[in-house]
Simulated assay, not measured.
Amino acid sequence: MQGPGSGPSSAADRADALRITDLSHRFGSVQALSDVSLSVPRGSFTALLGVNGAGKTTLFSLVTRLYSNVSGRIEVAGHDLRRQPAQAMARLGVVFQSRALDADLTVAQNLAYHAALHGIGHRQARERTRQVLAQVGLDQRAGDRVSALSGGQQRRAEIARALIHRPDLLLLDEATVGLDVKSRAEVLALTRRLIAVEGVSALWATHIMDEIQPDDDLVILHKGRVLSSGKAASIAGPSGLTQTFLSMTGAAA
């Protein structure tokens, strides 16, 4: 999926959707991330697997500029986040673990507000709202208040919000937390369908092994460090992903 203002043959469009190199971050005396390097290839579903406290949310906060990185390098679709913040953020759509929609507004109003933040005009915003709500299966709920939606529908609305400006990369931080089994499967299937049909890339942070398929790209993050990266099947090996993860993190019995 092309970002705004870029030709299909530009270097940015040939770059990885996300590339992080030697990224570290501290909170006082606490080392939250240590020399983290990873990449999200174009058109891929990349799972970032780690228990609570592994550093996943800190990593997302750095990529979305909630925190400033003072070491390492972050590139979004070929744009350096520190040197080209506007271009990098224009290529990025985010679904945070905490709910980001205004529950008292309608779905369409939430999307219109987000579109305005990206400089999208009123007429184009209405068309984009129609398109993205159809993509996530909420085209009949545009006029409903967010508070009237189920948890799974709210997550799908947040994904629609993240898609409004046509990003190259979706960041999803524990996007299925608090959802029932059916809703969790729907959100996960939607994300994979967007990759297959729309060409968007995704970095999917999770602690749930069942959300990862053997052919997914996988990064295991533990205590702020990358322990392994590659295809999930190769990392899992004959022992399976759960046992391999427990062995890597020192939690195996």
Rank of each mutant, 00 (worst) to 15 (best):
L170S: 03
L170T: 01
D217H: 15
T191D: 00
G151D: 11
R145Y: 04
L170I: 15
R166T: 09
K182S: 11
R145M: 07
G151R: 08
V219M: 11
T176V: 13
L149Y: 04
Q213I: 00
D173P: 11
G199N: 05
I220P: 06
E158T: 07
T176L: 00
V219I: 14
S147I: 12
R192N: 09
R145Q: 13
E174T: 09
L172D: 01
L170A: 05
L203S: 07
Q213N: 03
G152V: 11
Q213M: 13
D168A: 15
L194W: 05
L170D: 01
R166C: 12
A205T: 10
L190S: 04
D168M: 12
E186S: 14
V181Y: 12
V187Y: 03
E174V: 07
D210A: 15
L172I: 02
R166N: 13
S201F: 05
L179Q: 04
A157E: 01
R192I: 12
L149H: 01
Q213F: 11
L188W: 05
A196V: 10
K182M: 13
V197R: 14
V177R: 06
T206Q: 10
L188P: 03
A202H: 11
G152E: 05
A160M: 07
I164C: 06
R155K: 12
A205E: 07
D144R: 14
G151T: 13
L170E: 07
V146P: 02
V187G: 06
D173E: 10
A185T: 11
L171Q: 09
W204N: 03
P167H: 01
D144L: 14
A202Y: 09
A202V: 15
R166S: 14
P214I: 04
T206W: 12
V177K: 08
E198C: 12
L179W: 10
G151L: 02
S183K: 08
S150V: 09
G151E: 07
S201M: 06
A162L: 03
P214Q: 08
D144T: 04
E174Q: 09
D217V: 03
D144H: 15
E198Q: 14
R166K: 08
D168Y: 01
V146F: 11
S147R: 15
R145W: 00
T206M: 04
V177D: 15
S201C: 10
I220S: 10
E158V: 07
L179P: 03
L179M: 13
A148P: 00
I208C: 03
R161C: 09
V219L: 08
E174I: 07
E158L: 12
T176I: 05
